[in-house]
């Protein structure tokens, strides 16, 4: 079976400063991989590089997503191909209505895939369902995208978007940070609901607590721009107990 995501020897630089220095990662269909690592290890850079942010220059290696090379694809083409990034800091867009935004996004993706646009009723039903599951107020739909949302609401809104857009691969960048335990459970449930044996996930996190609810298939440690250790769930627990200090020892 082909990999959903195959990253080989990826090097990414920002302003000529190399952040990722030869990263390898293979994620199969239906798998959930967790990527952990200390601050500054390049976790968010990986997320942005996957989504195709300007200024994140791929200086070496390759990213293959569902059989396609991502290098020359625009962010919207990656999205249409089924890649979703949940932002660590979701962006506020004043004046753009949340529901309108999400429907535009969904229809743009469907159009790109040659699928018929979704009708208003079906769309609203699906969004309302997701909102309810994440215990979000429906009134948020009428507000501007992320504007005036609390930190927790923004994070849950990313999960709502993911549920509506139904990507093949979701990359979640520190979606757990800043959440209280109830919100954390809602987010975990939201992710688990979408695990159908085909859809893949890359969960970037600093802490183990979200992983307790997700049962990752693989846990990787990112440090200094490379995956320095891989293992199962027990690795996450070890990191939680011992901190990232041991990385330096093993590196030394």
């Amino acid at each position: 079976m082909n990999d959903m995501l195959k990253i080989s020897q990826l090097k990414v630089a920002i302003d000529d400063k190399e952040i990722l220095k030869g990263l390898d990662l293979e994620v199969g269909p239906g798998e959930l991989h967790a990527i952990m690592g200390p601050n500054g290890s390049g976790k968010s850079t990986l997320g942005y590089a996957l989504a195709g942010r300007d200024g994140y220059d791929i200086t070496g290696g390759s990213i293959e997503f569902d059989g396609q090379d991502l290098a020359d694809m625009e962010p919207e083409e990656r999205a249409a191909a089924g890649l979703f990034l949940a932002f660590q800091y979701p962006v506020e867009i004043p004046g753009v209505n949340n529901a309108y935004f999400l429907r535009s996004a969904l229809n743009a993706q469907r159009k790109a895939r040659g699928v018929e646009e979704i009708d208003g009723m079906t769309f609203l039903k699906s969004v309302r369902e997701s909102l309810k599951q994440l215990k979000m107020d429906e009134a948020l739909l009428k507000r501007a995208v992320n504007e005036g949302f609390s930190g927790g609401e923004k994070k849950r809104n990313e999960i709502v978007q993911m549920a509506v857009l139904q990507p093949k691969l979701a990359v979640l960048d520190e979606t757990d940070s800043g959440l209280d335990i109830d919100a954390l459970k809602l987010v975990a449930e939201g992710i688990n609901r979408l695990r159908d044996g085909k859809r893949s996930f890359v969960v970037i996190t600093h802490y183990q607590r979200l992983l307790d609810y997700l049962n990752p298939d693989h846990v990787h440690v990112l440090s200094g721009g490379r995956i320095v250790e891989s293992g199962g769930e027990e690795l996450a627990r070890r990191l939680e107990a011992e901190g990232y200090g041991f990385l330096e020892e093993s590196a030394a």
Binding site: A51, E76, A79, A80, V91, V96, A112
Partner: peptide, 19 residues
């Protein structure tokens, strides 16, 4: 904001118009 919209699949021109 433009990047955010594009990661959700909205093409650049459309995303600009939306913004």
């Amino acid at each position: 904001a433009l990047f955010y919209l594009r990661t959700r699949g909205i093409p650049t021109q459309e995303a600009m118009a939306l913004l």
